[in-house]
Design a protein around this nucleic acid. Structure first.
Lengths: 243, 243
DNA sequence: GAGTGGTCTAGACCACCCC
DNA sequence: GGGTGGTCTAGACCACTCG
């Protein structure tokens, strides 16, 4: 009787969590709107309130929902605040946080390069949209950024006039395309500024810049954005809390 | 009756957690040894098992203790694995993780510079120990590192022969000095290699390097180490998971 | 088998929000 | 006042570890 079926078990609250995330991903509750109360979910799933609570609490810690005592549980919404604290890690000398202003340089359709295929898990020759921006902190050009998204996820994005693209794109993805950015990972390197970058950022060609490469995933863990930022770290630095 | 005494409340499990962390910090349970079981702690504090559990679970998520089903709850211990996953973020092209080998260049006593005073919250002129190392990944020199610790926290550290200093220092701090590193934060910048660094790392002078500045805190949230690493990111990059 | 932490339940009360 | 999530309790059972 050494019957070992190794993986096939997960606690109830995990199963519930998986179901709830799927319902979020299917846009059943649009960002900012309220989920049913714990009690309603508990009776609907035939489990105790505590089990629902454990699932929702975990989702809250992952920023998939926002829970507020006395109000309810709400589908996560990208806000300035969230962009600032979860995604934007370039801070000033005293670790003070400011969101950059953005100036779009170009926005064009194209087809995937091999790097883009790998980062976005797309086939070769698929249509993508590429956006290039310069970003300013305290009126100083600090970041050149170029990002790529699959065209089928964001149809018509390249036709958006530059002044409609906000500097916090994730709330735009959410409201205009129903795409919710849920997770991201970044890879950092030091590189030398190209002459073009140097001119845009007002530094000498060959100056060291911090290259930040980010892959962002939606609620289905599908990569939906790939961006590379080149940052002048003379007056700003990338902040990371370990643990 | 609009008596508003704003801060003076915290849930029981938080209070318990604070007490337990204090007991950890006082070295009542040395790293690796078992804490009392949930039931014993519950009766000792006169609260329910669930309240103790919530405190311990949070401490587990912060890596202050390690909880293992069927075995017990253990005071956190720095291991190779923890160094690799919690503290060492420089990874290879396929995001594979390896701990570097280290070669100590110098280890000396001195008195604080103003930078060190600020980072370590020390008075000016206090005694510190400075260690300089070169670190290797796959037999390639990739990192030059210089770190500073307060001499009163690590008395006699500068007299340790170089070959006694392991490349994972945190387990050494723990076993030799009873100092447990609990948290750290890092600031990253791109800089140009000095001629000396360039020679050590086998790159051209002026090459871009990734500068990682880390402040590490012990269980009492006292800064006990300040280190600056300069990394050649040609074949490696700094990996960061957002969220 | 005894002891540990992990899950699940049920019920109570509290803090908060809104009507 | 009624509804929400947050805390606290008590007890049951499960999964795991060790002797």
């Amino acid at each position: 009787m050494t019957e070992t079926s190794p993986p096939s078990y997960s606690p109830l609250y995990q199963q519930i969590k998986t179901l709830l995330v799927k319902r979020l991903a299917s846009n059943e509750w649009s960002p900012g709107s309220a989920l049913p109360s714990e009690i309603k979910l508990a009776t609907a799933y035939g489990v105790s309130q505590g089990t629902i609570r454990k699932a929702l609490t975990e989702m809250g810690k992952e920023h998939l929902v926002k829970r507020r005592q006395g109000r309810g549980t709400f589908a996560a919404q990208h806000s300035q605040e969230r962009a600032l604290f979860q995604f934007f890690h370039l801070v000033g000398a005293n670790d003070e946080r400011h969101l950059p202003d953005s100036h779009v340089i170009s926005s064009q359709r194209g087809s995937t390069t091999s790097d883009e295929c790998q980062a976005l898990e797309l086939g070769s020759g698929m249509a993508v949209v590429r956006i290039k921006r310069v970003r300013y902190l305290n009126d100083e050009a600090v970041i050149t950024e170029s990002l790529t998204v699959p065209s089928d996820v964001f149809p018509g994005l390249e036709e958006q006039p530059a002044d409609r693209l906000p500097n916090t794109l994730y709330s735009f993805y959410e409201s205009e395309y129903g795409v919710v950015i849920a997770h991201a990972s970044e890879r950092l390197r030091a590189i030398a500024a190209t002459p073009l970058e140097a001119e845009l950022l007002g530094v000498a060609a060959g100056s060291p810049l911090l290259a930040v490469e980010r892959r962002a995933l939606d609620l289905n863990n599908r990569p939906v954005e790939w961006r590379i930022s080149h940052c002048n770290t003379e007056h700003y630095h990338y902040f990371n809390e370990l643990d």
